[in-house]
């Protein structure tokens, strides 16, 4: 579903429901009322947006630390000619949750999600051994915003 296939109601739903979903018996009815819609319309629209892949999910996003887990951002300077091979090695680690190529001498940026900081250190050490490249770790010290909100 292309971006321009969204109508004003779809946009209002996406913009209005990126956070603060109610926890009550008829939450979609309550959310619909806030948007000036009825429950059946909201349910049908949400199903369509999910089926079309505009929404990856409808539900909670957890704070990893609260689930007894931790995440750590890390980066490597990968020689461009080896980039794909190194990406394959790194992505092969189950602890690696995200991996992005970025425009910088440090050109591979990934996140490891593990049970605790010790496991994160161990995973990064394993990745360093498996790739033969230095891994820089950037553990999070504070978080200043929680809502990933993208107006559409």
């Amino acid at each position: 579903m292309a971006d321009d296939a969204l109508d004003a109601t779809d946009r209002a739903i996406i913009n209005g429901l990126q956070g603060g979903f109610p926890v009550c018996e008829r939450p979609y009815a309550e959310a619909a009322a806030r948007l000036g819609l009825d429950e059946a319309t909201l349910l049908a629209r949400l199903r369509r947006l999910l089926d079309a892949g505009v929404l990856t999910r409808f539900g909670p996003q957890y704070r990893p630390e609260a689930l007894g887990g931790t995440t750590c951002l890390a980066a490597m300077a990968v020689p461009p000619e080896h980039f794909d091979a190194v990406a394959e090695i790194v992505n092969g680690f189950t602890a690696v949750a995200h991996n992005y190529a970025r425009d910088h001498a440090l050109n591979m940026w990934f996140v490891v999600a593990t049970a605790d900081a010790g496991a994160a250190d161990a995973a990064l050490a394993d990745i360093q051994r498996a790739t033969g490249l230095d891994v820089l770790a950037f553990p999070k010290e504070a978080e200043y915003c929680l809502d990933l909100k993208l107006p559409v």
Binding site: T56, F58, V152
Partner: peptide, 28 residues
């Protein structure tokens, strides 16, 4: 379910609750 989810939310275990957008699909 309602009581536990409310508690999880108040404790910050749930940081955000709603539509999770596939931003590339929306042109971001």
């Amino acid at each position: 379910v309602l009581a536990r989810l409310t508690a999880l939310r108040e404790a910050g275990v749930v940081r955000r609750f709603g539509a999770i957008v596939r931003h590339r699909a929306l042109g971001y």
